Amino acid sequence: MRLKKQKRHRKIVRFYTACFGFREPFKVLCDGTFVNHLLVNRITPADTALSNILGATVKIFTTRCVLAELKSLGESYSESLKAATNLITARCDHEKRKSAVACITEIIGAGNPEHFFVATQDADLRKKFQELPGVPLIFGLRNALLLEPPSAFQRRFAKSTEEERSQMSELEYKMLRMKKKTTLATEEAMESYVNESEGDQNLHTQTVTKTNTGRKRKEVKDKVQFKRKKAKGPNPLSCKKKKNCGHSMFGAKKESKNESETTRSMSRKRKRSRKGKKLEETNG
């Protein structure tokens, strides 16, 4: 149950921070009934109990009118008066003393500009603040403190403000139109400047080409006209010789025959050396 309650409280706090701009440390404005409830049920210290609910640091406030009302109630509320005097007193700009309900409603105003969490046990005051946008309410139930969920009116108001934020206002629309006009004027000026510069460049290129062509023609007349070289055939030294496939075998046979004949003729004609004869004669 505790986890579910904490999740619910976190959701409510997130709603008020996102839609109405509440920021840490959260300011809690207490009346006399809430201070008395804390003391009777011994929910102390109050700042830790409230910070556990809201999940952030807390500053507790009260008003001079609330303190005066507690003083007027007598000795039965003396302890709650002492506890209330220790709280920070919020500034209320009215000369005469008012009731606690009137004083708190005046401080909260129409849109709660100070971003107060209102802590009260008064059911009528809670109903009254449920019809105002951006006023979160805290109340006590026995030993527990609860954060009241946002009312249907507050949810509708938050939705309508979100839709208004998404749409453009008249001032923003006028600003956008002025911006469009200025951008169009600058674009037109840039285009005209670019066109002028391109025209100047074309004229310059035309004059340059005319002068170049005139010069080329003069140069062509002065220069000697050579004949074009025709494409030559391949280098015969770099080409491979053709192979005679048909006559190769016959040529080889003829060569072999000639070689054999020469060898035979060489073998038949044998020269005898004269030195042998001389040796035989000497030996004989």
Rank of each mutant, 00 (worst) to 15 (best):
V35L: 14
V35G: 01
H37F: 07
H37P: 04
H37W: 04
L38W: 02
L39I: 11
V40S: 05
T44E: 12
T44F: 09
T44G: 04
P45M: 08
P45E: 01
A46H: 02
D47P: 05
T48F: 13
T48N: 15
T48R: 15
T48D: 14
I53D: 00
I53Y: 08
G55K: 04
G55V: 11
A56N: 11
T62R: 01
R64F: 05
V66M: 03
V66N: 00
L67F: 08
A68H: 15
A68E: 15
E69Y: 02
L70M: 09
L73V: 11
G74P: 08
S76W: 02
Y77S: 10
S78T: 05
E79W: 02
E79P: 00
L81D: 01
K82N: 15
A83E: 14
A84S: 15
T85R: 15
I88Y: 13
T89S: 00
R91N: 12
R91F: 10
C92G: 01
D93C: 07
D93V: 08
H94S: 07
K96G: 00
R97E: 13
R97L: 09
K98C: 08
A100P: 05
V101F: 04
A102Y: 11
C103G: 04
I104Y: 03
T105F: 12
T105Q: 15
E106K: 09
I107G: 02
I108G: 03
A110Q: 11
N112I: 03
P113K: 10
E114S: 11
F116A: 07
F116G: 01
F116I: 05
F117Y: 14
A119L: 06
A119F: 10
Q121D: 01
A123T: 05
A123C: 08
D124R: 14
D124Q: 12
L125R: 03
K127E: 11
K127P: 00
Q130Y: 09
E131P: 00
L132P: 08
P133M: 03
G134C: 14
V135F: 05
V135Q: 03
L137E: 01
I138K: 04
F139H: 11
F139V: 12
F139I: 09
R142G: 07
L145G: 04
L145C: 06
L146Q: 08
L147D: 04
P150E: 04
S151L: 02
A152G: 01
A152Y: 00
Q154P: 13
Q154S: 11
F157E: 03
F157M: 11
A158T: 00
K159T: 04
T161I: 03
T161A: 14
E163I: 10
E164I: 09
E164M: 14
